[in-house]
């Protein structure tokens, strides 16, 4: 049977289309526009085609920054996800300590990025910072301003301190939603603690973990404020991530064309990786399409 067609229905979509157009599509188109043209000021534009794209894609500056981003996000996910799960598992499920733990966990999330950056910047300074002084008194050489490993460690600790709570809270919400009967059944079936985690807790946390991984990935891949406040991308270029490089290029050097091309590429990379995470994690533990059995 054919469905009656009524194109008037499209009018209902119009308001949303307008809003999305103004808020997302038009700004994005401006960037697309810049990315395929060259300008020398005076509002004069010359067609550049894919020139900027190939320039960005083949520049070692972009490769290095992208590599730093991938490494950073990888390290962040590798630390925060297991740590978040572990903390969520060890949090109490009932009693007066529940609100205490939840509030403690929520506190870091309430602090703005640049404040977190400033806190750690001061905290880690070798001359006046508590951490920096203590470390140097103990004979540990630590200086994020001159040593790139120290700078990385500081930014990672900053991010872990700031955002592990988010993973904890998400996992915790997944854990408390598991009915008691599952644990009882597992005891009766003689399951070990590890098997309870592997076959009950982890599968039940799958959905919230997906959200946690996506949020933490996107956020860490877009990291800007923390390295900017700490060292402004240094020492050298060691903490110059894509976002920092992009700002340098667009606002520092006014290379609008390459910066626009880089923005588009940056955006597509995040989109692609999120899609990969989403597909992999939602298909994990789900039946493959049924095969005919002979």
């Amino acid at each position: 049977m054919d469905k009656p067609l009524n194109n008037k229905a499209w009018f209902f979509v119009l308001p949303v289309f307008f809003l999305v157009a103004i808020s997302a599509i038009i700004p994005l188109m401006t960037v697309v526009n810049y990315s395929v043209q060259d300008t020398f000021g005076n509002n004069q534009f010359f067609w550049a085609g894919t020139e900027w794209y190939s320039e960005v894609l083949s520049s070692s500056r972009f490769h290095d920054a992208l590599l730093r981003n991938l490494m950073f996000s990888g390290i962040i996910l590798a630390i925060e996800i297991p740590l978040g799960i572990a903390i969520a598992l060890s949090m109490p499920r009932k009693g007066i300590w529940v609100p205490v733990c939840l509030i403690l966990m929520a506190l870091p999330l309430l602090i703005p990025w640049n404040v977190v950056g400033t806190i750690w910047q001061v905290f880690g300074r070798a001359d006046i910072g508590l951490l920096g002084r203590v470390l140097s008194e103990l004979g540990v050489e630590y200086n994020y301003a001159t040593n790139s490993v120290d700078a990385w460690v500081t930014i990672i600790i900053m991010d872990v301190w700031h955002w592990t709570s988010l993973v904890v809270l998400l996992c915790y919400s997944g854990l408390v939603a598991i009915p008691e009967a599952y644990y009882q059944a597992a005891r009766i079936d003689g399951a070990s603690k590890w098997k309870v985690f592997r076959y009950i807790q982890l599968p039940k946390m799958q959905r919230v973990l997906l959200i946690a991984v996506l949020l933490r990935f996107m956020d860490s891949f877009m990291i800007y404020t923390e390295p900017f406040v700490l060292t402004g991308g240094g020492p050298g270029n060691s903490t110059t991530f894509l976002s920092i490089d992009l700002v340098k290029m667009a606002i520092g050097q006014f290379d609008l064309g390459p910066a626009a091309a880089m923005s588009i590429i940056y955006f597509l990379i995040i989109l692609l990786l999120c899609w990969v995470f989403y597909t992999v994690m939602t298909n994990f533990g789900v039946d493959a399409p049924e095969k005919e059995v002979d």
């Binding site: 009915p179 009967a181 599952y182 009882q184 059944a185 009766i188 599968p203 039940k204 533990g285």
Partner: peptide, 13 residues
Amino acid sequence: IAQVFQFPVIYDT
């Protein structure tokens, strides 16, 4: 012993 609960308890994955 074995116990069957009010809601089916199975290992999803």
